[in-house]
Amino acid sequence: MEEVHATRTELLARKNQMALAKQGCELLKEKRDALLIEFMAIMNKVLEASRRLQEAARKSTYAMAVAKAVDGLATIRSAAMATKGEVTVEISGSYIMGVPVPEVKKKSVRRSALERGYSVTGVSSRIDEAAERYEQELDIILDMAATETKMRRLGEELQRTRRRVNALERVVIPALAEQVKYIQMALDERAREDLFRLKKVKKSLEAKKKAALQEG
């Protein structure tokens, strides 16, 4: 236990600290619960996006396998060189329960077969289909990236808040209660000692007074 001066001022200070810690703990518990609600909502979104991503990945792998099988790798790689493109994302920030989270605005990467840069007469619909599937997958990945980052940030904050609540509930408040109890006990002990001493003094004074009367 840290060094505690058993004084009435100290007792008041510790009691104030304890009241503050309890209030802080309540507030943090409220924050934790609110974060948990947000976290669960985002987690459902992430799980849904993850399920969609798995499905999209399965379909794109399948479409690519069909294209590779029928058209051959050389033809696919050749077509891929014609379709160079770019992914534009705009990243800004916002706050959820005071936690900074990224907001990603993106332009869909999906293109029509006529916009991919090669001629439809020379590239099979199998390659087109594989390209389309991968564009869909990329769209989901970009959506998921923002939501997953939000979830991670909220998760970190949730963990931090939970640690603080635990620290207050299990360490700080019990320690302060212990100190208050100790000071209270010390002060009570001192009061009892004072009373005893006063009684002793009184008794001694009375004895002296009695002796003086008898002598007189």
């Binding site: 050389a74 050749s78 060189m81 014609a82 160079k84 090669y118 020379g122």
Partner: peptide, 14 residues
Amino acid sequence: DIHNLKTILRGKHA
């Protein structure tokens, strides 16, 4: 030849 020419043009383009 057409496949090869397209591939070369695509390669240069990319």
